[in-house]
Design a protein around this nucleic acid. Structure first.
Ligand code: MN
Ligand code: MN
Ligand code: ZN
Ligand code: ZN
Lengths: 140, 140
DNA sequence: ACACTTATTGAAAATGATTTTCATTAACGA
DNA sequence: TCGTTAATGAAAATCATTTTCAATAAGTGT
């Protein structure tokens, strides 16, 4: 559904709509876990055989530029992307299956102010990521 | 000073003390910012000319194994290492010069419990990293 | 001090991931 | 429908990391 929105975004920003891009967008937008370029390639090629890996890289680049996807950092590697959350959100990752959940409402103001005072740094950003087991992986 | 401790750690774990390792340890242990393997190579080679880049990779691997250094993830790349903090600490990075400060005392229990309840995930770990400007870079 | 065992080394080759080049194709505004 | 030009995929180039391997030297026992 939101696939259409992504394609519209691309179009509005002067990018042409091609079958290659449609295939990549469809895969990435619908995934509940972060995907590497090769994973996207393999999956998207089932929709569009002629797709090239290079185009996957190029499309991911543009989607990141438009803030439609974001890079996910993990102990095993940092070359994976997931559709970006809206507004100020952070990720919660299942260490077993990779399932991603977004959350918001973290309040680090007290902490950052205290650290700023203590260290003299002017703090402007933070990265927060939680790891654990999703409902499925927890039970089974 | 603590360079000696690192070397002792290596020795205690059955690793031999070589000039190559001494040079790498000296550089990494004293750095106030995260260094990439090539940066370590360039700097350590000033102490030990014959040093090979391969040995830098191998030594960093061992230091990480012994928890003497830790990998630092940044927007620009995730292949840099800094001497590890003691106990439960997190990093505060200067976006201008890369200077690293450690901090502790973050209390995410309330948050993680709330997120756990909301999502059904069993949360076991977290990554937290702050970004900003260090005292030097803030003024100048 | 010497000899022995074997971990460690650096050079070179191999691998793997990403980027660049380039001729061809096709999106889309006119 | 046409023309312009962005987009494409194949192949080559580049870059980072790992593996292979013969030579070296650290640490141990004498
Ligand atoms: Mn936050
Ligand atoms: Mn913490
Ligand atoms: Zn799971
Ligand atoms: Zn700074």
């Amino acid at each position: 559904m939101s696939t259409e929105l992504w394609l519209a975004q691309l179009h509005e920003n002067g990018y042409r709509l091609t079958d290659a891009r449609r295939a990549v967008v469809e895969i990435v937008e619908r995934s509940a876990r972060a995907l590497t370029p090769v994973e996207v390639y393999d999956m998207a090629r089932r929709k569009y055989r002629a797709l090239g890996l290079v185009t996957v890289y190029r499309t991911l680049e543009k989607l990141e530029e438009l803030h439609l996807i974001q890079r996910v950092h993990q102990p095993m590697g940092c070359q994976a992307f997931i559709s970006a959350g809206e507004g100020h959100q952070h990720l919660l990752l299942c260490q077993n299956c990779g399932q991603v959940a977004f959350f918001e409402g973290d309040d680090l103001d007290v902490l950052t102010k205290s650290i700023a005072k203590k260290t003299g740094y002017q703090i402007s950003e933070h990265w927060l990521q939680l790891f654990g087991l999703c409902v499925n992986c927890r039970t089974n």
